[in-house]
Design a protein around this nucleic acid. Structure first.
Lengths: 227, 227
DNA sequence: TGTCAATTGTCAGATGCTGACATTAGCCTC
DNA sequence: GAGGCTAATGTCAGCATCTGACAATTGACA
């Protein structure tokens, strides 16, 4: 319990010790059980006791792995977001800010499975995304997490461009607008085929929808950057 | 409890009946006591019991006026947001979308006092805004409320321009980006003079900061709108 | 004044979450 | 491989938010 725990996801293939492996198994089991219940019967209608009973651990153990019931709902999101941020950091240095953000978003969506399949089935991750979007209390937390991510993105953009985040508002502004576009795309996608369940198709659809909206406002945002 | 309750703010000067007046008084007293406690000792460290004891009503009564502890924290925000939306609706029809949003925002900030002074002192409203921005759980709800407001704004913009909100993404996109700018301005303001407390000055500062940021990205956003 | 309906209070209980302490179980040394 | 160390888990008590049910109070209106 010394080093990670806050990361808790980014590819750590062989967690040598038996203890570590057991911990990871328990954690993943809790996440799977929680998302399964949340997506099946709804977030509010699922109690923490139901989750812990499904995994056969005490309620207290649950709250040692997750700070709150909300926390577990975002476990796979957390992994996906780390994946996205890593994609941004891996972008070539000569790319313009918006191009780098766009590329990172599309890359991350393309390889979403690699980053979370050890924890939960990607299809469950997608279903959970819809639950988040349609559950007010989860949506609120989701938006706050997005805001935190935007802050990190703005700092990374500022770093890439050699700008002072406190002196130049452009990094924050371009990220804020980028985030706005992403959210609009996600929302429209969520409202689209509400009860269809087209499995793997959904990921592609959301990815394409995002690309479409980004390309729509991209030119003018880029112009704004140069001023 | 039949008609309003959800509105609960927009200027209703003489609520004739004794019952209605008493209800409004109780409600306002709860809001004032709550915001006073929240701003003095923090949101998390304040219990609902403390609020109800200060007003001398039962806890059950509190939850009849407000659906949750979070709810009361946004009572004055709700009024301010209605004020802003009304300002947008009152804008001349020939104004461009972004100009109308800009004008409504600045007007609303200018006359913020008129819309909430019956409920709470404007200075308390401002202090509460900072508590919201700096309290994670409240910030989350705040962002969700903003998202809901943006949806309403997008629909109003679409109506003004005679567009179909489901067919043309521009209303949502311009509003999303407008909202992003507003949030950046609000965040920067909140971080600025953290412990200064310059009273009325604060409102002016935030208003000006908003105007500055809007003017910064305004031209390019307007370009985006025309295509 | 007396009846009706709305407001409030009281009570019990579900749920989320935390601290304290006991118990179990992996790990490491001798 | 026995025993001690420490991390993980379980148990229990308790606080806070929030809700339903029912009783008591109080304004409204004939």
């Amino acid at each position: 319990m010394t080093t990670d725990e806050a990361v808790a996801d980014t590819g750590t293939p062989p967690p040598a010790g038996l203890r570590e492996r057991k911990k990871r198994r328990t954690r993943n089991a809790l996440v799977r059980a929680a998302l399964e219940l949340f997506t099946r019967q709804g977030y509010e209608r699922t109690t923490v006791d139901e989750i812990t009973e499904a995994v056969e651990v005490s309620q207290r153990t649950f709250f040692r792995y997750f700070t709150s019931k909300e926390d577990v709902a975002f476990a796979s999101q957390e992994a996906a977001e780390c994946h996205f941020f890593a994609a941004l950091c891996g972008r070539p240095a000569d790319e313009a800010p918006l191009a780098a953000l766009r590329g990172a978003a599309l890359d991350a969506w393309g390889s979403i499975g690699d980053s979370i399949e050890q924890m939960v089935p990607p299809e469950l991750h997608i279903r959970m995304y819809r639950v988040i979007e349609s559950t007010p209390s989860l949506l609120a937390v989701h938006l706050r997490r997005i805001a935190e991510m935007e802050e990190r993105l703005a700092r990374e953009i500022a770093r890439r461009e050699g700008l002072d985040i406190d002196a130049d508002p452009r990094p924050r502004l371009v990220v804020a607008m980028f985030g706005g576009v992403i959210r609009v795309a996600g929302k429209l996608w969520g409202e689209r085929d509400e009860g269809d369940e087209e499995e793997g198709d959904s990921v592609v659809t959301l990815r394409d929808l995002t690309a479409f909206h980004l390309d729509y406002v991209g030119p003018s945002l880029a112009k704004q950057w140069d001023k």
